[in-house]
Design a binder for these strands. Structure first.
Lengths: 254, 254
DNA sequence: ACACTAGTTCCATTTTATGCAACTTTAGGC
DNA sequence: GCCTAAAGTTGCATAAAATGGAACTAGTGT
C-alpha cells in the first residue's frame, strides 16, 4: 500500500472525536509499527500535511490542508452558494446547519455552520451517515431514479435504526415522498432528540449535488418555526439552482 | 522525493488562482512526466485527497481534506476563538477580516470572513505575504524579541514595496511601535487602495500565535471608524487571550 | 476519416517504504 | 538527582513503490 493511503488514513483520524495525534495514537489507530508511524508523521509534517501543536509532539492537520479546503469551496459554485444560504439560515434561526455531499452510499458534511442558540446541535463533522438512514441522504437520493438507487444497494440495505427505512421498498417510498414535498425530514433518526430538514440542490453543468440541511432540538421547535425553516430551505435551494442556471425552477414556497 | 511531497505540491497548486487541475496542468506546474502526473492524481483520488469534478477529468481537493480542515479549526482553540471574534467584527463593520498565522517568514490566512459592504476587500486566501512587509506580519513579529526577528532574516530582508520597511533596523522600529500601540497598521502596502489593522493574540499554553485583521478600502473609512475598528480588535484579542488563560491581560481600549 | 491533444498503460531501473531490533529521549516516581 | 517506564527515533536488509521513456487509447475539432 502506498504511503499516500497511510497519509490519508492519518487525516481520516481527525474527526469529531480526535483533534490531535501522537506517534503512539497513530500506532493504535492504524495498527502499524511504531517506526513507521514515526516516519509517516515526520514525512507528512515535512510535506506540510501536518503540523505540530506548539513544540509538543502532538500533530494536527497543516495549513496546506486549510488552503486546499478553502480552494475547494471556491472551485464549486454550488458548494459555495449552498454554504452561503445555509450560513444565512443558520444565523437567522440560530440552529446549526450543514452542506453535505453523497460519497458512495454515505453522506459527508462539506461545510458546517454552528448555531447560536444556547441549546443547539453540536456540529459533528467527519461523521459519515448512511444515505438511506438520514434525511440528508434521502434528499440526495431523491435526485436519482429508483433504478439508480436500487443499483446502489445490490445486497439490500441495513437500517441504522427502527425509524429508518427497513427495506429498499420502504426507502423508495420515502424518497418518493421527498420528491413530492421537495423537503426531506428526519425525526430523531441519526441522533436522539434531534430533528432535521434537508433540501437538495444540483449543478446542471456538472451534475454535482449537495444537500442543505438545518438540524435542531426536536423538543424546542414548534410547527410554525419548522414551516419557516422549510420555506427558507426551499427558497434558498431555488436561489442556488437559479444562480447556476436551472431552467426548470425547483419547488419554492411563499 | 517521496510521493507525499508530490501530493503536497499538488495541493499547494490549489490557491488563489487555481481551483482545479488536470493531468496536463499538473505536468506544467510541477514539471514532472505525464505518466507520473496521471498516476499521482489517480493515487490521490483513490486516497480521497482529490476528487473529480462531476465526471470530468478535472480534479479538486477531496472531502477528506475538508474534514481535516474543519478538524484543524476545532483543534486550535486559539484559531477558533480568534475566528469568532473576527467574524463578529466583520459582521458589525461590514469589512472583510482574516485570522492569520506566521509560517516561517510568511503570513498565511487561516480563516477568512468576507465583508458585506458593496465595496469590500475581496478575500484572497492562499496568498502568502512576507511578514516584514505586511501589517499582519509585523503584528506577529511584535510578539518576538528583536534578536529573534534578526535571526529570522540572517541575510537581511527584501522590501515588498517602498511603503514597507527597507531594512531590518526600520522593521524593528516599526515593530516596536506595534508593541507600544498594540495594533499594527498597514496603509496600501500589500494592495493598492487597501488599509488594514491587525492585532496579535497568543496561546500561553502552546506559544501559538495568530493575528486578527480587518481590511477596508482606504478611501472610504474615516478616522472615527478606524478607531472603532481598533477598539474592537484590541478588545477582541483581549477576550481571546483571557479565554485561553492569559494572566497578564493584553492592551484593551474602552 | 484525419490529425491532434489529453490521458493511460507497459516495463526495466531506481528509489522509497517496511518491519524488526537496538538506541535515545522524555516524563514520572521516589 | 537518580532510576524506570513509556514514547519516540534510527540502522539495516528486504520488499514494495515510484520513475521516465515510449507505445498505446480515448476524446475533439476540422
Amino acid at each position: 500500500m502506498s504511503i499516500l493511503n497511510s497519509a490519508a488514513s492519518v487525516l481520516r483520524c481527525f474527526g469529531a472525536d480526535c483533534t490531535e495525534l501522537t506517534v503512539t495514537d497513530t500506532v493504535e489507530k492504524l495498527g502499524i509499527p511504531k517506526s513507521n508511524a514515526s516516519r509517516l508523521l515526520r514525512a507528512m509534517r515535512e510535506a506540510g500535511l501536518l503540523e505540530t501543536i506548539g513544540d509538543t509532539k502532538r500533530h494536527r492537520p497543516g495549513v496546506l490542508v486549510l488552503d486546499a479546503a478553502i480552494s475547494y469551496r471556491r472551485s464549486s459554485g454550488l458548494v459555495q452558494r449552498a454554504a452561503d444560504v445555509v450560513a444565512r439560515i443558520s444565523a437567522d434561526t440560530g440552529h446549526t446547519g450543514y452542506v453535505s455531499k453523497l460519497i458512495g452510499t454515505e453522506v459527508a458534511a462539506v461545510t458546517d455552520h454552528p448555531g447560536t442558540h444556547a441549546l443547539r446541535v453540536v456540529s459533528n463533522i467527519g461523521r459519515r451517515l448512511e444515505a438511506h438512514s438520514s434525511g440528508t441522504g434521502r434528499a440526495l437520493l431523491a435526485l436519482m431514479s429508483d433504478a439508480q438507487i436500487r443499483a446502489l444497494y445490490p445486497e439490500g440495505l441495513v437500517p441504522a435504526s427502527d425509524l429508518s427505512p427497513q427495506s429498499i421498498e420502504e426507502l423508495l417510498t420515502r424518497v418518493a415522498e421527498v420528491r413530492r414535498l421537495g423537503v426531506s425530514y428526519s425525526r430523531q433518526e441519526s441522533t436522539r432528540g434531534v430533528d432535521a430538514q434537508s433540501v437538495a440542490a444540483s449543478d446542471p453543468e456538472t451534475g454535482e449535488a449537495v444537500a442543505l440541511c438545518i438540524v435542531y432540538p426536536a423538543a424546542l421547535v414548534a410547527d410554525d418555526e419548522r414551516l419557516t425553516i422549510e420555506r427558507m430551505l426551499l427558497n434558498g435551494a431555488a436561489d442556488v439552482a437559479a444562480a447556476l442556471g436551472h431552467t426548470t425552477p425547483t419547488k419554492r414556497r411563499v
